[in-house]
Simulated assay, not measured.
Amino acid sequence: MTMLEVEAIDTSYGRSQVLFGMSLHVKAGEVVTLMGRNGMGKTTTIRSIMGMTPPGAGSIRFDGAEIAGKPSYAIAKMGLGLVPEGRQIFPNLSVRENLLATAGNRSPGAQRWTLPTVLEAFPRLAERARNMGDQLSGGEQQMLAIARALMTNPRLLLLDEATEGLAPLIRAEIWSILGRLKQEGQAILIVDKNIGALTKLADRHTIIEKGSVAWSGTSEDLVRDPDIAHRYLGV
């Protein structure tokens, strides 16, 4: 079943158009990546989905319902959980308070993520539960941003620059957490540049260039043809 359908959206900042007929989809339980060089429109795509920069044309449907043009809070309530670029945690709240600030259940059935289950999944955060947000390292802040999104019990988790600028050990820990989420059936749309980790984690990939889809395919397709990464990702 297709959960998220982005069809031919055009998104602009004022008179500057960034997305040109951008399309992608995510099925229930699927992990999909959005890749591309810097400035190609990845974050704008995420912002368009979440209602922060609504598209001027095209369609965005979640579970078949049109969400383009809806306010961000309404989209979040439908079950989309965002881990934004730059983390954007509350610096003057403790780790525990950051987590409780967004707590809810936006998935049908029993509430999977509560404060105890999140702290069990993120033992580093459990150790720092009383620390303020601005007392955490960059890696700990990213873990907190992911944990905070999970506290909404999202049906679809969106991560913008999941491991950008983090130390290798922290990166490995985050990839391990995302792997566990996939095994548990969590649908994920992820923006990142780590092709090796992404091809092991994701089912499908969408590569964006100058605001449009340049290539899409499976992890097997991407590994089989290394020229795709050289051509579109500059690696």
Rank of each mutant, 00 (worst) to 15 (best):
S216G: 08
Q135N: 11
R112L: 13
Y13I: 12
S48A: 15
L156D: 03
R128K: 15
G81W: 01
R128F: 00
M22R: 12
S137G: 11
L158M: 11
T2R: 14
G39W: 09
G138F: 13
T53D: 11
A172L: 13
T2L: 13
I208A: 00
I46Y: 07
V83N: 03
E140S: 10
A103D: 04
I188P: 03
S16M: 07
G133W: 10
A101L: 13
E5I: 05
G51M: 08
E7R: 14
M50I: 06
S94V: 09
G133E: 12
G139I: 07
I174T: 05
L99K: 02
Q88A: 14
G179Y: 02
R37H: 11
R180K: 13
T218E: 05
D227R: 14
P168N: 13
S212C: 00
Y73R: 09
S219A: 15
Q135K: 06
K27F: 10
V31M: 06
L198P: 00
R171Q: 12
T218S: 15
G133T: 13
Q135C: 05
E209D: 14
A101T: 11
A167P: 05
Q135H: 09
A202Q: 01
V32C: 04
E127S: 05
L181E: 04
Y232L: 06
V6S: 02
L119A: 04
I170Q: 01
L24I: 04
G56L: 05
K77H: 12
P116T: 05
A28D: 14
Q88I: 09
V191N: 06
E164Y: 05
S107T: 13
M1E: 14
G64K: 10
I228Q: 06
G86I: 03
L166G: 07
M50N: 06
M40T: 12
N131T: 07
L80Y: 10
R15F: 11
I177E: 04
L201I: 08
S59D: 10
S48I: 02
F20A: 11
N98Y: 09
Q183F: 08
L178I: 03
N131D: 14
E97W: 04
Y73M: 04
V26I: 11
E30L: 08
L136V: 07
V18P: 03
G41D: 09
E30T: 02
M3F: 12
D221C: 09
L159V: 09
I195K: 02
A147H: 02
R231V: 00
K200P: 06
G36A: 04
A147C: 03
K182A: 03
I228M: 05
G104P: 04
F90K: 01
A68P: 07
D160I: 00
N131K: 14
L19F: 03
S48Q: 10
I49V: 15
P54M: 03
E66T: 10
T43A: 10
L34P: 01
